[in-house]
């Protein structure tokens, strides 16, 4: 019996008069790939930002593994095993690829000033760990050749992969991906789909915001649809595809009807 990983209860985030997230209730089971879709401005990224602590809630609660995590700061959220990527890629531009991944190990290491200055065994252990595991993750993601290139100079598709690699370095239980295929060509998109499916098969729960319907319908076993801050539909892909409210929200986007698996 799969357990509930995330429970979002009556979550509200208001910016003055704007109701970016309005009484959203979602339950996400462990081990699945869960999709969150909706037209632009529906509140999807805001939802993510509240889940991972970048924004505070106006009201409502969030439970992770049945523990209340509402309004915890981001650096504690990741320690619980919740990692994320961002809609506009937030890489550390003036670091190299390996350096970017190394940050992911921050929560697994503990070198302090004393260790750093005197190169104690803690220091050497931490440095070895970050380099070894960092290169391993780069191998896994297929970026090993770029290890010493500056993140600034990479192509868009590789930058997105690097962001995912960095999130993986934190050894998370669940991965939140915010539009991971935005701006990618079909070849790159297919690669990412395969990669996400593989990660899920290895045990990672994945929550994904996407606009590309092919990605969503291919990967997700359950989907929530947001519109103007409210959840208007939830279910398996086929249900969502044929829901009247969803079609209305996407009025004009005939992709939804035309999609074939």
């Amino acid at each position: 019996m799969e357990s509930t990983l995330f429970e979002i209860k009556e979550l509200c985030k208001y910016f003055g008069g704007v109701k970016a997230v309005d009484k959203v209730n979602i339950k996400i089971k462990k081990g699945i790939i869960y999709g969150i879709i909706g037209p632009n401005g529906a509140g999807k990224s805001t939802l993510f930002n509240v889940l991972t602590g970048q924004l505070s809630t106006t009201s409502g609660d969030i439970y992770f593994e049945n523990k209340k995590i509402t309004n915890l700061p981001p650096y504690e959220i990741i320690r619980l095993g919740i990692a994320r990527t961002f809609q506009n890629i937030k890489l550390f531009k003036y670091m190299n690829v390996l350096g970017n991944v190394k940050i992911g190990f921050h929560i697994q290491t503990k070198t302090n000033f004393w260790d750093a200055i005197f190169h104690t065994s803690t220091y050497t252990y931490d440095e070895r760990l970050t380099i070894k595991k960092g290169l391993e993750i780069l191998e896994r993601v297929g970026l090993a050749d770029f290890a010493y290139d500056y993140a600034l100079n990479l192509s868009y598709g590789i930058q997105r992969k690097l962001e995912i690699a960095r999130a993986l370095a934190a050894d998370p239980i669940v991965l939140l991906l915010d539009e991971p295929t935005a701006g990618m060509n079909p070849v790159e998109t297919n690669q990412i789909i395969k990669f996400i499916r593989q990660l899920n098969q290895e045990g990672l729960t994945i929550i994904i915001i996407e606009h590309d319907m092919k990605v969503i319908m291919n990967l997700c076993s359950r989907i929530s649809v947001l519109n103007e801050g409210k959840k208007i539909c939830e279910g398996i892909p086929r249900e969502v595809q044929t829901d009247k409210d969803v079609i209305e929200a996407y009025l004009g986007k005939s992709n939804l009807l035309k999609f074939k698996k």
Binding site: Q54, L55, P74
Partner: peptide
């Protein structure tokens, strides 16, 4: 002043 989007850190 208005409290604009406070991205917490």
């Amino acid at each position: 002043g208005r409290k604009e989007n406070e991205i917490k850190i």
